[in-house]
Design a protein around this nucleic acid. Structure first.
Lengths: 233, 233
DNA sequence: TCAATAGTGTCTATGAGACAGTATGGT
DNA sequence: ACCATACTGTCTCATAGACACTATTGA
C-alpha cells in the first residue's frame, strides 16, 4: 500500500485543438504565448480548470475566450489526457485535450485573450515548433477528426448552415486530402438516415447550376460509413 | 486574464475498467473498498498517479497490483478523463479512466492489494451500486469495447493464444450479445489482412471436428469492419 | 452409425466506383 | 450558343447474409 495520497502539487489544464475550414484548407487556432515558458512561441489555446468547473465547462469557457464564439454551437469532444512528467517544466501538469470543430470561424478579436491568436493551416502547424507537447496533441486531434469523418456526421460541423452537398464534400476532400466523386458522394449522403435534411431552398454559385441547400440532420453516426480508401486490397 | 494558477489542492488518479471473458460472459474486475468514502462498497480498481510516473505507467502498475498480472500483455488504452466537481466528496479529483482487455485472467490473489477484488458479469455490474461515478465509467468502457470490435482487431486480446476461430467468434457474440454465422465470420476474418495467422496446429474440442489454431496478427485495424447490424435499413 | 462442430462453396442482395447523360444557371 | 456545376441513371464488381454441403472427430 502506497503512502501516496495525491497531495503533491499538480496542475490540471485543458488544451484545445480547434479546427475550421478557411480558404479551402484545414486550419487550427494557435496563440502566441505572452509568458514563460515558451514565451513568444506558438501553442494551442488552453488554461487552468477552475475550482467549480467541470472539464467540458472549462473547455467551453476557453473556447469563448479564445475565439470570441459561443462554444455551444461547435462540436466539442474530449480527445485524451496528457500527463507525462516534465511536459511542463514548472510543475507536474495534466492537460485534458479537447477537439473542437466549427465552420469558418471569425478571426480572433483584438482586446481579448485572443489578441494573439491566429489561424494556421494544419499542414504548416505540424511542421513548426509548438510549446510543450502540443505538436503531439495536434497530431492526435487531426487523426481523430479524420477518423470521425468516416463513421459519424461531424463533417457537417464544419459547414455553416444551410450548406450544399458540394460544401459537405469539400470538407471530406480537404480533411482527407483526396477527391471524391460528386455523384457517388451525393448518393451516399442522401441514402444515410438523417445525415442532412433538405431545406427546399437553392443557392446560386458564381457559375453553374444552383444547388439544393441542407441543414444538419439528427443522426450523429453515419451508417454505412464513408470509406476513405479506394480499395485497400 | 485569470488569476488562476491551478494551485488549489487537486488529486489525479487512474481508474481501470478491466474486461475479460469468463464462463461465456463479459466480466469486469471490481474491488471492495477498504476505506471511506464508500467503504465496503464496490468500485473500479484504481489509485493515485505518482510523482514520476506517466499516466499509462500508473495504469499498468495498478493493473499489476490488482490482478497480479503483467499488464504488458494486455490491451490497454485511455478511455476518458472524468473531473466533475464533487465526484469525490473529499477533494477535487480528476480520474483518467483506462480500458484493459485480456483473456480469462486469474482470480485475484489473496495477500495483495487485490485481496478484495472479484470478477462480476458486466450486465450485473451495471445494475449494482458502484462508488463515485464508476457506473458511468464502466458504461463508457463497455461502449468503447463494443465499438472497437467493429473496426479493430482487439477482439483477439480476449483470446489466450493459440485460439480457434470459434473462440474469436465467441468474443464477438458475448460482447455484442448476438449470434454470428460461423462460415461468414470465418470468411471475413481470414480475408482481413493479418488479423490472425495460422499456426498449423489443431485443437480437439470435447465434441466435433478439431479446429485450426491461430495467433494474433500484426494488424490493429480491421478493414473492412465487422458489422454489428443485420441490415439497419 | 450418429451427433456435433469445422470448414467449403454458392446464390443473392446491397452498396460503392466509374462514368455517361440530363438539367439549370451565368456569360 | 457555351461553360460550369448540379443532379440522375446505369453498369460492374466486391462483399455480406443465408444456407446447403462436405470433413473429421468422439461416442
Amino acid at each position: 500500500m502506497s503512502k501516496y495520497d495525491g497531495t503533491a502539487p499538480v496542475a490540471v489544464t485543458v488544451d484545445l485543438v480547434i479546427f475550421t475550414l478557411r480558404e479551402s484548407a484545414l486550419q487550427v487556432l494557435l496563440i502566441e504565448r505572452g509568458k514563460p515558458p515558451y514565451m513568444g512561441g506558438l501553442a494551442l489555446p488552453g488554461g487552468f480548470v477552475r475550482d467549480h468547473e467541470d472539464l467540458r465547462g472549462a473547455a467551453l469557457r476557453e473556447l469563448g475566450e479564445e475565439t470570441g464564439l459561443d462554444g455551444g454551437k461547435l462540436h466539442l469532444e474530449q480527445l485524451r489526457t496528457f500527463g507525462t512528467p516534465g511536459r511542463d517544466p514548472r510543475v507536474r501538469t495534466f492537460t485534458v485535450a479537447y477537439l473542437a470543430l466549427g465552420p469558418d470561424l471569425p478571426t480572433p478579436v483584438a482586446g481579448t485573450d485572443a489578441a494573439h491568436a491566429r489561424w494556421m493551416p494544419v499542414a504548416e502547424a505540424l511542421t513548426v515548433e509548438l510549446a510543450f507537447d502540443h505538436r503531439a496533441i495536434l497530431r492526435e486531434g487531426l487523426d481523430r477528426a479524420r477518423a470521425k469523418l468516416e463513421y459519424t456526421t461531424v463533417a457537417a460541423a464544419f459547414c455553416q448552415e444551410p450548406f450544399t452537398l458540394a460544401d459537405l464534400r469539400h470538407v471530406y476532400e480537404v480533411v482527407w486530402d483526396l477527391e471524391l466523386d460528386p455523384s457517388n458522394f451525393r448518393r451516399k449522403v442522401l441514402k444515410a438516415d438523417d445525415f442532412v435534411v433538405p431545406t427546399g431552398a437553392l443557392r446560386a454559385p458564381e457559375v453553374g447550376r444552383p444547388a439544393e441547400l441542407y441543414r444538419r440532420g439528427r443522426s450523429e453516426i453515419l451508417y454505412p460509413p464513408m470509406v476513405r480508401t479506394t480499395h485497400p486490397s
